[in-house]
Design a protein around this nucleic acid. Structure first.
Lengths: 190, 190
DNA sequence: ATTGACCTGTGACAATCGTCACAATCGCAC
DNA sequence: GTGCGATTGTGACGATTGTCACAGGTCAAT
């Protein structure tokens, strides 16, 4: 398994010594996922961070039987469910592969047992938590600041890779509209 | 100035020794605010956390000349603009007193200068950051999970003090609707 | 008591969105 | 090529919301 992405992704969060990076690398476990295979299911307790090496992860929840997407996490980025993580409550979210993927799993239970008070690890985890929460907040601000059409054009401008890798049906729920409405928003753009 | 609220609010975030709490207390500066007086203005760089001792703080941003409320922070709770804080970018939010208030200000510039590598302070700040971000995420989930009417009923059930202390006009923008729509939602509840 | 500022409710109308139904297109296995 | 499933576009209709306008109520200062 190639650890280049792993090392540079860790270094991006916490600019620390090579030894500390090696220590963090040793905490990560790689896993292959088929499309649709879950890392975290609704009802599970989240105790891990996930780093995407290849493919992407889709985070969604179940609203009256309908899946609603909250985030798509691509290569080199981390995801977790901090709410479940911090409150130690069962997750109401599911995190699963959106296509055949490879991820690195940082399990906090094993990390804490092995390197309990190691400052590099605790610092890394807290920085990562803040990073993940700020990324989630950016998505939230879409809903608070923009109308559905404005949200789509924001993505079109600021995150065009989403349009290339995600189906429009998946994107619709991410933008908080039905796929029909998204289709009409796109029709008016021409 | 009464420091009881200050001490217990700090202890709630970081369960640490009395000395560390005393250290953190010494970092806080009290300030009185008139209604509408701002602590953080749009364009400012946010370098502080605010703890409400009395009254409440209203966090809002300007959408095409219209103020949109993002949060109301009451006695014993903290607020900040983490996005500006972490990215060191000018704030697009304003934090101001919603009624005559007393707040404790934790200025990170002065704290960092005095106690740079003190573990109790850095731990406290990071925990606080995560706490504030998770609180913000709870408000965000209202928008992603519920319709406007469901949002109002959620507040009615889970945060009734908001209805008692905030005018309906202020609440409307917090729920992402106009005051007329909120008025109609309330009318249908009877 | 009167004024004026602010808040809340409500009616009329237009715009937007969701729902349901069905057609068109695309990709892929056979 | 053929067939099938998944995806996307579109039309019709109802429900919800925003906008604009105005009425009534509350409260504090004069």
């Amino acid at each position: 398994m190639n650890q280049t992405t792993l090392q540079s992704s860790i270094a991006q969060i916490s600019k620390t010594s090579d030894e500390d990076i090696a220590l963090l690398v040793s905490c990560a476990v790689a896993r292959k996922l088929k499309k649709g295979e879950p890392l975290l299911k609704e009802g599970d307790l989240c105790r891990s961070f996930y780093l995407v090496e290849k493919g992407y992860l889709r985070t969604w929840y179940n609203k009256n039987g309908v899946p609603i997407n909250l985030s798509f996490t691509f290569e080199g980025h981390f995801i977790s469910n901090l709410k479940s993580f911090k409150s130690r409550q069962p997750s109401d979210l599911t995190i699963e592969a959106g296509e055949p993927s490879v991820v690195w799993i940082f399990d906090l239970n094993t990390m804490a047992a092995t390197y309990k008070a190691h400052p590099a690890i605790t610092l890394f985890v807290r920085r990562l938590a803040i990073r993940v929460l700020l990324a989630s907040e950016e998505h939230s601000s879409l809903f608070k600041m923009y109308t559905p059409a404005e949200r789509y054009h924001y993505i079109e401008k600021n995150n065009p890779q989403l349009l290339q890798r995600i189906s429009l049906s998946q994107l619709a729920s991410y933008l908080g509209v039905t796929r029909e409405t998204l289709s009409r928003i796109r029709a008016k753009s021409n």
